[in-house]
């Protein structure tokens, strides 16, 4: 069964069609890149998949189950992790506490009012930080970390729930080129090891063409292409709409 199946998704804001009839599928262990110019509807798509926005039409099937209309916190429990375009972590908590928070939530202990939270599942949280290379920053408050580090914390948080699907909105924005490669390599390894399906958006074409197994291209809310790297790269419509007609190089959007 397909891990994540999106069918005919649509969303409008005040008469403007932000996402129009978008369909795609994501298999376990696969990295799917969603690309398109600013305002193409990528974040809106993400927000509909993880429940932040309710689509006007269409279905989102996770393991065959329609999750449209569920709130984000329920969709997360079903195995959809998420990182944000502008990284969102808990600024008044340390890096490790951020991850612990997600672990507490996973285990359904949110309403416990007595035992100390910072002693909960510390080892697991540390090993997740280790995975993203942030173990040495574990005790620093997230509010003062460098932006690239915060993005990695976000990944650790997203992994805490052992997700089936990972939605990553510009995971490497604000990182140095070397860091980007390291983070995407890590993501790919994680996806392959654990059979996680990763849907990500990205402006860096190096990252996209370096790591994505498959691509979908959006423009003005519509899907204009879909396929593997080469077929998308060579698709004339993509070249026209996305990269600008006649240009072959300059793959940064």
């Amino acid at each position: 069964m397909t891990l994540l199946l999106v069918e005919n998704l649509a969303k409008g804001f005040g008469g403007v069609c932000a996402v129009d009839n978008v369909s795609f599928r994501l298999e376990a262990g696969e990295l799917l890149a969603m690309i398109g110019p600013n305002g193409a509807g990528k974040s809106t798509c993400f927000n509909m998949v993880n429940g932040q926005l309710r689509p006007d039409a269409g279905r989102v099937l996770l393991d065959g189950k329609n999750i449209v209309g569920l709130p984000p916190h329920d969709i997360w429990r079903m195995g959809v992790g998420r990182t944000f375009q502008i990284a969102a972590t808990f600024g008044s908590m340390t890096a490790v506490e951020n991850v612990q928070m997600a672990l507490i939530s996973r285990e359904g202990l949110l309403y416990r009012m007595w035992r100390r939270a910072d002693r909960h599942a510390r080892e697991e949280a540390m090993s997740l930080l280790e995975r993203v290379g942030m173990a040495d920053q574990a005790e620093r408050p997230c509010g003062i970390l460098a932006y690239g580090d915060v993005k990695r914390i976000e990944l650790a948080i997203a992994l805490a729930n052992r997700p089936k699907v990972l939605l990553m909105d510009e995971p490497t924005a604000g990182m140095a080129p070397k860091e980007r490669i390291a983070l995407m390599a890590l993501t790919r390894d994680l996806a392959h090891e654990n059979g996680i399906g990763v849907l990500f958006t990205e402006h860096s074409m190096d990252v996209v063409f370096g790591y994505a197994d498959k691509l979908i291209v959006l423009a003005r809310g519509k899907m204009i292409a879909e396929g593997d790297r080469d077929s998308v790269r060579d698709n004339p419509r993509v070249r026209e709409v996305y990269f600008g007609a006649g240009k072959t190089a300059g793959l940064h959007a």
Partner: peptide
């Protein structure tokens, strides 16, 4: 004070720090 150090207290601060992130890790804000 104890409650604030408990999972619930952490969750409460989490909702304040970022309701977006909270919802995205299963916290019903």
């Amino acid at each position: 004070r104890r409650i604030l150090f408990s999972p619930f207290g952490f969750a409460l601060r989490a909702t304040r720090d970022s309701s977006l992130r909270s919802e995205a890790i299963g916290i019903d804000v």
